[in-house]
Computed example of a mutant assay.
Amino acid sequence: MAHTHSHGIGHHEHRHHHAVTETADARKRVAIAAVLTFAFMGAEIIGGIISGSLALLADAAHMLTDAGSLALAWVGFRLAARPADGLRSFGFARFKVLAAFVNGLALLALAVWIVWEAIHRLLEPQPILGGILLGVAIAGLVVNIIAFFILHGGDHDDLNMRGAIWHVAGDLLGSVAAIVAAILILATGWTPIDPILSVVVALIIAVGGWRVTRESAHILIEGVPSGLSPDDIKKDLEANLEDAARVTHIHAWALTEQKPLVTLEVVARDGACLDTVRRAVKTRLQQQFGVSHATVEVHKAPDLP
């Protein structure tokens, strides 16, 4: 039986260097966005209390959760950059996925809170100072646009980064809703628009939170990565590798959304070189399915019971 876990050293070092560079860039972007978000949060809280606007208070609450979520995302990127050790053979790479999962849950919880508060405001309307609301909301929009573009320049395939982007996008939408509410209140005096627009923003936030939570949970329970199918792998290898008589015990999962992992066993045809078959399988997996980390066991047919 040939059982290997080796990889091309040159390519591995190139990928590792590329990953470290991407992680450092993402960490810097998240840190800047976190500082901007936290710095303006206080102004929104004060403005929301003085003006009586739920839209502004909801946006301030969102910015508060964002500051914590962005800090968590930063920790995720920081830990992901640490090397593997004797207790963690894959390092801390999956902490990014865990951070994304927590951020997704935070988005869902925030959406529920906003809807709950909006219902109370609709049942018991309160006076709102449209002028203060408009001024603070415009300033918040500027801050959120800056933070959004800082994060949007990062890696969109990274779940941790996507969770951070959804948080800031929710803030941006919250600021837009507050501006619209302020203009309508100043023009018509109709205050129910404030909680109504808050609910719309909450629903958008909930969609983003559900997506991030669902995708990160799928990775955490070691579900099959998107684009990979054990059946497709089996059919492809058996059809395209002449010396692979049978492919069995296929398992596919992911360490992170960017690092799929596969293990499988191959029954080689009589007379085939086991090491040649092994290398052919690993090459096919990388070229056809984008799997660069695979554990392949190769057997001779007579070795099987």
Rank of each mutant, 00 (worst) to 15 (best):
M1A: 14
M1Y: 08
M1R: 14
H3G: 13
T4Y: 10
T4Q: 15
H5W: 07
H7Y: 14
H11M: 15
H12F: 15
A19S: 12
V20N: 07
T21G: 12
A26Y: 03
A26T: 11
A34F: 01
L36G: 08
L36I: 09
T37D: 07
A39F: 09
E44Q: 14
I49C: 08
I50E: 09
I50N: 04
G52K: 02
L56P: 00
A61Q: 03
M63Q: 05
A67W: 02
A67H: 01
A71Q: 02
L72F: 06
R94A: 06
F95V: 15
N103R: 11
N103E: 12
G104R: 06
L107P: 00
L108H: 07
L108D: 07
V112Y: 05
I114F: 02
I114G: 00
V115L: 08
V115E: 05
W116S: 14
I119Y: 10
I119P: 04
I128M: 10
L134Q: 04
V136S: 06
A137K: 04
A139M: 11
A139Y: 01
I145C: 11
I146Y: 10
F149E: 11
L151C: 07
G153K: 12
G154P: 07
G154M: 10
G154L: 07
D155N: 15
D157Q: 15
D157P: 08
G163Y: 03
A164Y: 02
V168C: 06
A169I: 03
D171T: 02
D171M: 09
L172Y: 02
L173H: 09
G174M: 09
A177G: 05
A182F: 02
I183R: 03
I185R: 02
L186N: 05
L186P: 01
L186A: 12
A187F: 04
A187P: 00
T188N: 04
T188W: 04
I193H: 01
I193P: 02
D194H: 06
P195E: 02
L197K: 03
V200Q: 04
V200N: 05
V201P: 00
L203P: 07
I204C: 10
A206S: 12
A206F: 06
V212G: 05
A217R: 12
A217C: 12
L220W: 01
L220D: 03
E222H: 14
G223V: 06
V224D: 01
P225S: 13
S226N: 10
S226A: 13
S229A: 14
K234W: 03
K234C: 11
D236Q: 13
D236N: 14
L237F: 10
L237Q: 03
L241D: 01
D243N: 14
A245N: 10
A245P: 01
T248Y: 15
A252W: 05
E257M: 05
E257V: 09
K259W: 11
P260D: 10
T263S: 15
T263N: 13
E265C: 11
E265L: 08
E265R: 14
V266M: 04
V266Q: 00
V267Q: 11
V267F: 06
A268K: 11
R269W: 12
D270V: 12
D270A: 15
G271I: 07
A272H: 05
A272F: 06
L274S: 06
L274C: 10
D275A: 14
V277P: 01
V277A: 04
R278P: 01
R278F: 11
R279S: 11
K282T: 11
R284L: 04
R284S: 09
Q287A: 13
Q288K: 15
V291L: 05
E297L: 09
V298K: 01
V298F: 06
